[in-house]
């Protein structure tokens, strides 16, 4: 039980669509263990992104609870949860356009209450270098980086806050196959070497095949594959 980092308890989510109530998640239960790499699969419109937005504290479920390390995230506060407990990697990388790669990583460091080393700049450089972004590239505007490099910066940023749970929404959706492989390897490294939990929402079988646990979102429920 102590190894469970995230627990979903009877999650329900629906919305009004042209006078009809469209049910996305229905009494969804799930548990995610520390240090594992999960992928969530499902056809378009199955509610993968909705599920990700709920477990990353960007939205509230209609009913049900989400527990992080045994604590209800609503009681903790979604803002605090996002600030100190999780990181999100997006398909579009979501980096701040007028900042450099290094600065994007450092923004995340300034937006957490977690204890971080004093030499934040040094840590940011080291993180970027670990994911293949050398110093000269780290100081470039992100517009001067390739898609793969931007996603690496995005992953470095997700690690910069020193959180245990990382979510990713189609992180390789815009990347070529070779880069996709590199990114998946990074996620696997994060789980194995840093004991982080990575939950990735994806369409890609190539990505899911390399995860520790594949989950299918179907009819509002998660099914282990």
């Amino acid at each position: 039980m102590e190894n469970i980092i995230l627990k979903l308890d009877k999650l329900n989510y629906s919305y009004q669509d042209g006078g009809y109530e469209r049910v996305i998640l229905k009494d969804l239960d799930a548990e995610f263990e520390r240090g594992k790499f999960y992928t969530i699969l499902g056809p378009s419109g199955s509610g993968k992104t909705t599920l990700l937005s709920l477990i990353s504290g960007l939205d509230n479920p209609k009913s049900g609870s989400i527990y992080f390390n045994g604590k209800n995230i609503l009681e903790k506060g979604l803002h605090k949860y996002r600030r100190n407990d999780i990181s999100i990697v997006f398909q579009q990388y979501n980096l701040i356009p007028y900042l450099t790669g290094l600065e994007n990583v450092m923004v995340a460091m300034s937006e957490t209450d977690n204890k971080l080393p004093k030499d934040k700049k040094g840590v940011a450089y080291a993180l970027l270098e670990k994911f293949g972004i050398v110093k000269s590239k780290a100081n470039r505007s992100i517009n001067q980086l390739s898609g793969g490099e931007q996603q690496r910066v995005s992953i470095a940023r997700s690690l910069a806050k020193n959180v245990d749970l990382i979510f990713a929404d189609e992180p390789t959706g815009n990347l070529d196959t070779a880069t996709e492989q590199e990114i998946v390897n990074i996620f696997k490294t994060l789980t194995k070497d840093f004991n982080k939990t990575v939950i990735v929402v994806t369409h890609s079988n190539a990505v899911s095949e390399l995860s520790d646990q594949r989950l299918l979102l179907k009819d509002g429920k998660l099914i282990k594959l």
Binding site: S56, L58, H79, K80, R82, R83, N84, S87, I88, N94, L95, I96, P97, V107, A108, E111, T112, R157, K161
Partner: peptide, 13 residues
Amino acid sequence: EYEIGVLLSIGSS
């Protein structure tokens, strides 16, 4: 908007 969304998602108030 995009920048604001990013900042909110990483925990900025």
